[in-house]
Simulated assay, not measured.
Amino acid sequence: MPEIVKESYIGSGIVYVAGRDVGNASAVELSIEQDTVTLPNYRGGGGNYDSVTRITAVNLSMTLNAFSNDNMALALRGKVDVLTATAVEAESIIAVLDGLADTVNMIDAAQAVTVTNDAGDVEYDVDTDYVVSAAGIRCLSDGAIANGAALKVSYTSLAGSALEALVESGKTVPVVVDGLNDANGKATVLKFYLWKPSPTSSLGIITEEFGSFDIEGEVLANDAIVAAGKSKFFTRKAA
């Protein structure tokens, strides 16, 4: 009696895009679009006499839970610039009482922040006349700053990164899923040679639950692979 092979599957793993670990990925899905051309059976009895099924697209989608700018650049066809901590002196802003006067850079609220009038000869008191956030200065209606007043703010900018969205035409990158079948503890590795992600259709900014976002893209044929019997799209290796 032939041996019955049990190969149940529960997938987990680490996703690498162009060699970069994208962090926690709660889903990765492969889909293949097909187009079937049929020749009807005219000899009686109905049905088809022949058929040919062509692959029209190979798609790869993933759900990411890590909201890094590098990940969001994939989803938004963006580029990422590095931000360094810099001392900013006397940046001009206009007061909005109980609203935000946003600054050019993110403010490091842990460092000293100074707000003065436009002439620089009157200094206002933090938490009395205004409060500070990373986005800018919020002038308080019960403080000494008048609505619409021209102000100067000096601060230290936060180090980090800046995502410039929708400025790229789209990159083609390799994807490797260093996976594990949790049902049996065996390793699986999937390699997608050329993946071209498309801009995401939605992105939650304020949420009550842990956020995630989807990235979909097409796996393109890799013409560098010419050996017979080798896929131009992807390969899966399993222990």
Score class of each variant (00 low, 15 high):
Asn117Lys: 07
Ser201Thr: 14
Ala119Thr: 07
Val28Asp: 07
Leu166Arg: 10
Ser157His: 03
Ser161Ile: 03
Val52Thr: 13
Asp182Gln: 14
Val82Phe: 00
Ala73Val: 05
Asn48Cys: 06
Gly120Arg: 02
Met72Asp: 06
Phe210Arg: 10
Gly136Tyr: 03
Lys186Met: 13
Phe233Met: 04
Ile137Trp: 01
Gly148Glu: 04
Asn71His: 06
Tyr155Ser: 06
Val126Ala: 14
Val189Lys: 14
Ile32Pro: 00
Ala85Glu: 13
Phe192Ile: 06
Ala27Gly: 07
Leu166Asn: 12
Leu74Glu: 00
Asp129Lys: 05
Gly160Ala: 06
Ala18Trp: 02
Asp81Val: 09
Leu220Ser: 05
Val82His: 01
Ala101Ser: 14
Pro2Ser: 11
Ile93Leu: 05
Asp50Val: 01
Asp118Val: 09
Ala95Arg: 08
Val176Gln: 01
Ala27His: 06
Arg20Ser: 07
Thr188Phe: 15
Thr56Asp: 01
Ser51Asp: 11
Ile4Val: 14
Ser212Arg: 00
Lys171Asp: 13
Lys232His: 11
Met72Cys: 01
Ala135Pro: 04
Val80Met: 02
Phe210Gly: 14
Arg54Trp: 03
Asp178Cys: 02
Asp223Trp: 06
Gly46Gln: 09
Val17Pro: 02
Asn59Ile: 00
Ala221Asn: 06
Asp182Lys: 15
Asn181Glu: 09
Ser231Ile: 05
Val173Phe: 04
Ser198Glu: 15
Lys230Ala: 14
Glu33Ser: 15
Arg236Ser: 09
Tyr9Cys: 08
Ser31Arg: 09
Leu30Cys: 00
Gly170Val: 11
Ala27Met: 10
Tyr42Trp: 13
Glu33Pro: 04
Arg236Phe: 04
Glu209Tyr: 09
Ser198Cys: 01
Gly143Leu: 03
Glu7Arg: 12
Pro2Arg: 10
Ala159Asn: 10
Ser12Cys: 13
Val167Ala: 05
Ser68Asp: 04
Leu76Arg: 10
Ile205Lys: 06
Met62Gln: 05
Ser8Leu: 15
Gly143His: 02
Ala73His: 04
Gly44Trp: 08
Ala66His: 10
Ser154Gly: 07
Glu89Ser: 14
Gly11Leu: 11
Asp118Lys: 09
Lys152Gly: 05
Phe213Leu: 05
Ile93Asn: 02
Phe192Asn: 02
Met62Lys: 05
Thr53Leu: 01
Gly136Glu: 02
Ile94Cys: 02
Ile10Val: 12
Ser201Trp: 01
Ala221Trp: 07
Ala146Lys: 12
Val131Gly: 06
Ser202Lys: 09
Pro197Met: 03
Gly179Phe: 04
Leu151Pro: 00
Gly179Glu: 04
Ala27Glu: 13
Asn59Ser: 11
Met62Glu: 06
Val17Lys: 00
Ser157Asn: 05
Glu33Lys: 13
Asn105Val: 01
Leu203Trp: 01
Lys6Ala: 15
Ala227Ile: 10
Gly160Cys: 11
Ser51Met: 11
Thr188Cys: 09
Thr188Gln: 12
Asn59Met: 04
Leu64Glu: 00
Asp127Gln: 11
Ala149Ser: 12
Gly19Phe: 04
Ser201Glu: 15
Glu33Tyr: 00
Asp98Leu: 06
Ile145Val: 08
Ser201Gly: 11
Ser161Glu: 15
Val5Thr: 13
